[in-house]
Simulated assay, not measured.
Amino acid sequence: MIEMSEQSSSRTLEVDGSAVHYHDIGSGEPLVIQQAFGPLPGTTAWLTYHRILADLAADHRCIVVDYPNFGRSSPREFHEPVHDLYVRNTLAVLDELGLDTVTMLGVSTGGTVALDMAMTAPERVGRLIVGGCSASTGGDPYLLAPAPTEVGRLFDECQSGPADRDRIARLLRGIVFDPDLIGDDLVERMYAWRLREPEHAEAWTRSTIVARSNLQALSTIKVPTLVVHGRFDRMVPLEGALMLLGYLPTADLVVLNNCGHWPPFERPSDFVAAVRAFLAA
């Protein structure tokens, strides 16, 4: 595995007057990795994926992107389908790096962004690895699960008021299957970041997420696709992965038991094994 660090791989690009933060690690075929959903601003792409990056960067150039209002990207107010904003930022990073066609990997919000990019800029996406995601901004309808789901409610609770350790802890421990994975030190870092940079949460509160269904457009995605989903995901239930299979003509599904909304964080070895088998094929 290659040597890497969060600091040495850190890069920033200005897009439409706002800073977009990303990491550039490894060499080889480009693998663009999209940030997951969680408390803002402390849910960085590095947090979600750091346990798999050394393995994947051994033979891939991993471009790991933070969204506006999250991580080290700038706070930014928006009034549109939010995943479209994230796609534009990602395309700007790819253009800056001179990358043409890439493999897109993302869980949670990152999966929705990857799907959105494959529909809006299909010439830039060669393969897809997604999971824990809906196809649509605003979510897809479920047959069995309630909406909003548990983690969605916890996020709204966390976001709707001032910074609160207990609310941040409840949200983080709702995201994962095993709450012991979320230590008090991580909660404290998230809490301190929220206090230090309130502009991210404030910009999010002023913004409008315009809902848009992408379900029918999924059939236009013809590239090889792997869906990796946690069995106990309390943000996007497993039926969401089955829904994707019904619309994506080339998708296969891997379900990880005893796993929630962040598979690369919770079961990194098994996530990497599924990804590597897909990439090798």
Rank of each mutant, 00 (worst) to 15 (best):
S5D: 11
V15M: 13
V15H: 15
E29R: 08
I33K: 00
Q34E: 07
Q34S: 14
P41N: 12
A45M: 13
W46N: 07
H50C: 14
L56I: 07
L56N: 06
D59M: 05
I63P: 01
Y67M: 15
R76D: 09
E77H: 06
H79R: 15
V82L: 09
H83A: 05
T90N: 04
D95C: 00
D95F: 00
L99Y: 00
V102H: 01
T103M: 09
M104R: 01
T112W: 03
V113D: 10
M119P: 03
R124T: 09
I129D: 03
V130Q: 04
G139V: 01
Y142S: 08
Y142C: 03
R153V: 02
L154K: 00
F155V: 00
Q159E: 14
S160E: 05
G161L: 01
I175E: 11
V187Q: 10
M190T: 02
Y191K: 05
A192I: 04
R194V: 01
R196S: 15
A217M: 13
T220R: 15
I221E: 05
K222W: 03
L226E: 05
V227F: 06
P237D: 10
A241G: 15
L242R: 15
L242Q: 12
T250V: 09
L253R: 07
P264F: 07
S269Q: 15
V275R: 06
